[in-house]
């Protein structure tokens, strides 16, 4: 009997299992346990959360594999890890240690300013960031089996996450009204593979799971992204840079499940302690913004 691994269905499928869930950034095995106990559907293992990468500056690289392995040992849920844009050797290393998903992430310093990783070459699935439909479909064309809107990581300001989610959803809505013969020029206009433009029109949604990311800090932020049509939420600095991470993490998990129930959202928003301090993206110099990384 033939057994196939690393197939497109397998790669896309794990992301489908994460839907309706919260993926949390963690920097220690202890954080990972707190996240799992709070109901995270997966964790992102890294050395520094985006807010600290911003604060400390310097080159941000793949985390120490030893740290990632310790986090993999600490929890039973899937563990993701980040590599730099275009750094396919970091990706090979992450695949070799057995992470469940690789995030080719703009949060780290890009290793290639023209090319992303050819993700079809790997058995491990990849998630990539996007700001609009064209960028999402280019990444899927390269083999990303999951997409996340970029937002502006490490700010606690949801405005960019909303902008990017609205861009993707709005463009898919426009696509739905287009005639078949308009699709080729639209594909050219947004710089996306024609076949994926066609598939997106037929499905009425991205061909892979699409999470929100970058700036989600409260249960209300998370539910907002779900009501806008995202499949789930990444929370980076928003949990472990807040006053009571365990409580806030559990509240955001509940908010993603019950995102349409305002009375539950009110209940889980109570007494969460201090949120992360946050930075207002509109007052941030262009050079400090990271969502523009990616081509």
């Amino acid at each position: 009997m033939e057994v196939k691994t690393g197939t497109w269905i397998e790669k896309k499928g794990l992301a489908q299992m994460l839907k309706g869930g919260v993926i949390m950034d963690v920097v220690t095995p202890e954080h990972a346990k707190i996240a799992e106990d709070a109901g995270a559907c997966a964790v992102m293992a890294l050395e520094r959360v985006p807010a600290d990468i911003r604060a400390q500056g310097g080159v941000a690289r793949m985390s120490d594999p030893e740290l990632i392995l310790k986090i993999m040992d600490a929890v039973s849920i899937p563990v993701m890890a980040k590599c730099r844009i275009g750094h396919f050797v970091e990706a090979q290393i992450l695949e070799a240690i057995g992470v469940d998903y690789i995030d080719e992430s703009e949060v780290l310093t890009p290793a290639d300013e023209a090319h992303h990783i050819l993700k079809h070459n790997f058995k491990v699935p990849f998630v990539c960031g996007c700001r609009n439909l064209g960028e999402a479909l280019r990444r899927i064309g390269e083999g990303a089996a999951m997409i996340r809107t970029k937002g502006e990581a490490g700010t606690g300001d949801v405005v960019e996450a909303v902008r990017h989610a609205r861009a993707v959803i709005g463009e898919i809505r426009r696509l739905a009204t287009m005639a078949e013969e308009e699709l080729m020029s639209y594909a050219k206009e947004i710089g996306a593979p024609y076949e994926l433009v066609k598939e997106t029109k037929e499905l009425g949604r991205l061909p892979v799971v699409n999470f929100a990311a970058g700036g989600v800090a409260t249960p209300a932020d998370a539910a907002l992204m779900m009501q806008l049509g995202m499949d789930g939420v990444f929370v980076g600095s928003g949990i472990f840079k807040s006053g009571d991470p365990a409580r806030r993490a559990a509240a955001i998990v509940k908010a993603v499940t019950h995102y349409q129930d305002a009375s539950i959202l009110a209940d889980v928003s109570k007494n969460l302690g201090e949120p992360m301090v946050g930075r207002n993206v509109s007052q941030m110099p262009e050079a400090e913004r990271i969502a523009g990384r990616g081509w």
């Binding site: 196939k4 691994t5 269905i9 397998e10 899937p78 695949e95 491990v124 699935p125």
Partner: peptide, 13 residues
């Protein structure tokens, strides 16, 4: 997780 991690995930008849 009896078959291992994601890279061990599989399809079969």
């Amino acid at each position: 997780n009896a078959f291992g991690r994601q890279i061990d995930s599989f399809e079969t008849d």
